[in-house]
């Protein structure tokens, strides 16, 4: 512990990041530039999220990391270990016990509370990027609220696929003002963006931080005749039987066998502990051997 400053970053850097976070909270959905630091992990592994977590963590926090909903993937494990080592904070896999949750591509199934902070890892913060390559122009579009182009993307979806096929990173409008990329969460999670917890989005390579204060109004963009729909696989979890959670589809053999399973591992296992069993599941406690 003595080798590192608390949570790896030096205090001046954390102050700089906190200032960006406060500005982001004051202007919900606005992308605040910040001087992103070189972190001891490659870009794309969540350097933005890690810097935000480092800036908001305090010694009393309990930290949880999820990657696509799972606590046990490489990315989640290594970031969790990183803060165990550099901040010495308690870590957990239980959503309810965590005070700071860093996430990649999911919002936990369990509703978050006012005592929690959700930190997102963001690859491309600019929702207009793939339609308008110029940063000067996209900034101007944000400042003048010229968001017609965002609907061109949705128009293209419908004309090509007959429905809005954007399934993740689905653009939203925050408090009737800024159009925001909610990071690559599935659009199933979009309605959950209006929540009690503070949400902070960090993009390390792109050097942007943006945020949603608790209970901020977040509306998914759509057309009058093609309304937004939070979609998921039309199936129940095969392991815990949940019908309302976002599912991963796993291919289990080379004969077309497949299994649907909650992407939120903590949600799935706590349901199993409560005795729920899915179609292909084994009751809790009997799979230990």
């Amino acid at each position: 512990m003595t080798e590192y400053n608390f949570a790896y970053l030096d205090e001046q850097t954390k102050r700089m990041i906190r200032r960006a976070i406060l500005k982001g909270l004051a202007i919900p959905g606005y992308q605040v530039p910040f001087a992103s630091r070189e972190m001891p992990m490659p870009y794309g592994w969540g350097t933005g999220g890690v810097q935000v977590s480092a800036a908001v963590l305090i010694p009393d926090d309990t930290f949880k990391v999820i990657d696509q909903g799972a606590d046990d993937t490489t990315n989640a494990v290594s970031i969790r270990r990183f803060f165990e080592k550099t901040a010495g904070v308690a870590v957990t896999e239980a959503t309810r016990q965590a005070t700071v949750i860093q996430t990649r591509h999911r919002i936990p199934e369990e509703a978050l509370t006012e005592n929690q902070i959700l930190v997102y890892q963001v690859p491309i913060p600019e929702p207009l990027r793939f339609l308008e390559p110029s940063e000067v122009e996209t900034r101007k579009m944000h400042s003048l609220e010229e968001y017609g182009l965002m609907h061109v993307k949705l128009y293209e979806d419908i004309s090509k696929h007959g429905a809005i096929a954007t399934a993740y990173a689905y653009p939203v409008k925050v408090e009737g003002r800024y159009v925001m990329d909610p990071s690559p969460i599935p659009k199933f999670d979009n309605p959950k963006l209006e929540m009690a917890a503070i949400q902070i989005f960090g993009a390390g390579r792109e050097q942007r931080i943006y945020a949603l204060p608790p209970y901020t109004q977040v509306v998914s963009l759509d057309f009058d005749d093609y309304p937004f729909e939070a979609s998921k696989a039309d199936h129940a979890c095969d392991v815990c039987g949940a019908e309302d959670s976002y599912l991963d589809e796993l291919i289990v053999d080379d004969k077309g066998g497949r299994l649907f399973m909650c992407s939120d591992t903590d949600f799935c296992s706590s349901r199993r502990r409560e005795g729920h069993v899915g179609a292909q599941g084994i009751p809790y406690g009997e799979d230990a051997a």
């Binding site: 339609l131 010229e146 017609g148 182009l149 609907h151 061109v152 128009y155 293209e156 419908i158 004309s159 090509k160 759509d222 057309f223 009058d224 005749d225 093609y226």
Partner: peptide, 27 residues
């Protein structure tokens, strides 16, 4: 023109920019 957007999207962009939000009408 926006070269990576379909002809229909190119024509519809100005309509969407002034607030049209009905796909059928834009089309």
């Amino acid at each position: 023109l926006r070269m990576n957007v379909s002809a229909g999207g190119n024509v519809g962009e100005r309509l969407m920019a002034v607030g049209s939000r009905h796909y059928g009408q834009i089309r």
